[in-house]
Design a protein around this nucleic acid. Structure first.
Lengths: 134, 134
DNA sequence: CGTCTGAGTTACGTCAACGTAAATTCCCAT
DNA sequence: ATGGGAATTTACGTTGACGTAACTCAGACG
């Protein structure tokens, strides 16, 4: 399977459009755990899966620390149930935050649309005046 | 009307749960324009309206600069139509950004919910094992 | 009149998420 | 052996959105 190929840092950068600095930074922050073959880093399928989630998380405005927590939930195997329950709580909290944000966002979108219709009419009437003046 | 009352910086801070530093910072960034009576700042209904929008914008992850642009659209009265059209464009761009973000957010919420159901089942089975062990 | 409080100005500090530059180090082909 | 091209480490720089400390100044109050 070409699926669990191992990738160099360059390949990763090209594939996910990030810089080497970013990948090393994520490793330092314990978001990724590439294999260290001598000096070089080698990224596995696991790292690629995590990176995808990191990048998506970022698009939602999560901090790297928050993302790390969620990643722990995703990849929790046979940990203590206490920790798992805690992290589960965190995820629930985040979920309701996200839903609240989505609702507010929807409302704001509607309001902004209203405002823009207002702008449209203004532009139209100004165009009229302009034609009349010529 | 108690609506267009004028408020001191302290009253504003209490009412909107921000620090004086924040309000002065927003003034410096031209997001607010309190009246300067001698030394003191006095905040009008207009400032309060703007502040509400600023705070909401922040919850969506807009930068203060982006918020300033939107505020300009909201409070645009009789400006040149060129500027207005430009700002209108910006607002449209932002709108589609927001909608894309909302869609992605919805998708992530669904996926996270899935993942959490997974976590629920794990917790349940672990609870079973625990009972059996006692 | 002294002082205490609240507001203001100035300017340096902070935190996140990297960017960027400098100085190795490693491998490979000439 | 040697020069070239990656990758690495170290460490200082950057941007946004304020925090925080130091000092000043204007009223209010006993």
């Amino acid at each position: 399977m070409t699926d669990d190929r191992i990738m160099t840092i360059r390949e990763m950068c090209d594939a996910y459009d990030v810089t080497p600095r970013t990948l090393r930074f994520y490793e330092a922050k314990e978001l990724l755990f590439p294999i260290r073959e001598g000096q070089k880093r080698l990224f596995t399928k696991r790292d690629r899966a995590r990176l995808k989630l990191i990048l998506r998380g970022k698009r939602f405005g999560f901090s790297l620390e928050e993302i790390r927590q969620l990643l722990d939930l995703y990849h929790m195997g046979d940990q203590q149930q206490t920790q798992l329950a805690r992290t589960y709580e965190i995820a629930q909290q985040r979920l309701s935050d996200m839903e609240a944000q989505r609702d507010e966002l929807n409302q704001a979108i509607d309001e902004l649309k209203e405002q823009m219709r207002w702008g449209e009419k203004m532009l139209a009437s100004m165009d009229q005046s302009k034609r009349a003046a010529e």
